[in-house]
């Protein structure tokens, strides 16, 4: 059982007009096996939370703490966070021309597991994971995210989640830009990982539709850089009906 604990997290970014505070005291505790949905309007700071947890250098932590089983996440480098068990499925995965998917996956898995995977089992592992996500085997010879469609990029993110086996996965707008079929495949992938592991999930989304496929245990409404309301899955249904208006004007 692991715990990711975010306390009073405050984050700023540098802008041309000077430092701008985005997160204004976020409190959130996620335990293994739990799925938390963070929902909120554009610009509420959802993605800032995701990137801050992963350690993107653009975001400056100005207050608060983040711990993973008591270890100070904010003191860790980006790769150390990944090794500690954090995974960020990005909204806009980055193209890396010149590195093949297979080379990338192998390098990442070697780094996370601390040793190179055995060739034979590795090939089977990747093939199986790709087949589960309805990915063509030829995909592994393509360059990382280069020329990928929106759906391919998100499948590739979930493929990495499957292979890297994080303790906690942050899915940042994984549903954005997906058609219904791709959304179903990606959601089934996440659910498969959930049922085969004890992963805790922080599902960040603007829309409620992914929550029809991935059932959250908790729903947090995010507005103006903090959590403004919390509840169970029924809160998502309320948002589906009424939208974010009351939180934005509040």
């Amino acid at each position: 059982m692991s715990t990711l604990e975010i306390k009073n997290l405050q984050v700023s970014v540098e802008t041309e007009e000077g430092s701008k505070q985005i997160l204004r005291g976020v409190d959130l505790t996620i335990k293994s096996g739990e799925t938390h949905a963070i929902m909120g309007p554009n610009g509420s700071g959802k993605s800032t939370l995701a990137y801050s947890l992963a350690g993107h250098p653009k975001y400056q932590i100005t207050g608060g703490t983040v711990t993973l089983d008591g270890a100070n996440v904010l003191e860790m480098s980006v790769d150390e966070r990944a090794k500690a068990g954090l995974f960020l499925a990005m909204q806009y995965p980055v193209e890396v021309p010149g590195i093949s998917v297979s080379n990338f996956l192998r390098t990442a898995v070697t780094a996370i597991r601390g040793e190179a995977p055995k060739v034979r089992t590795w090939v089977t592992e990747v093939k199986t994971a790709m087949a589960d996500l309805s990915m063509d085997p030829a995909f592994s010879e393509r360059n990382v995210n280069e020329g990928f469609s929106g759906g391919e990029k998100k499948r590739h993110e979930i493929l990495q989640m499957e292979l890297l086996k994080p303790k906690f996965a942050i899915l940042d707008e994984t549903d954005s830009g997906l058609d219904v079929d791709a959304l179903r495949v990606v959601s089934e992938g996440v659910n498969r990982i959930k049922s085969n592991s004890d992963v805790g999930i922080l599902l960040i989304t603007h829309y409620t539709r992914i929550l029809k496929y991935i059932k959250p245990d908790f729903v947090h409404v995010f507005a103006a850089g903090r959590i403004v309301e919390e509840g169970g899955a029924e809160l998502a249904e309320k948002l589906e009906e009424k939208g974010y208006a009351e939180y934005v004007t509040a």
Partner: peptide, 29 residues
């Protein structure tokens, strides 16, 4: 490219190795 480095590092690849990979990738393209 800081975003490429961040992406690789966020998958557990240490910074110096990520830089080497990015350079190699730069040429391999």
């Amino acid at each position: 490219d800081d975003e490429q480095l961040f992406y690789l590092q966020s998958r557990g690849i240490p910074a110096d190795e990520a830089r080497k990979l990015v350079i190699r990738a730069f040429f391999m393209e």
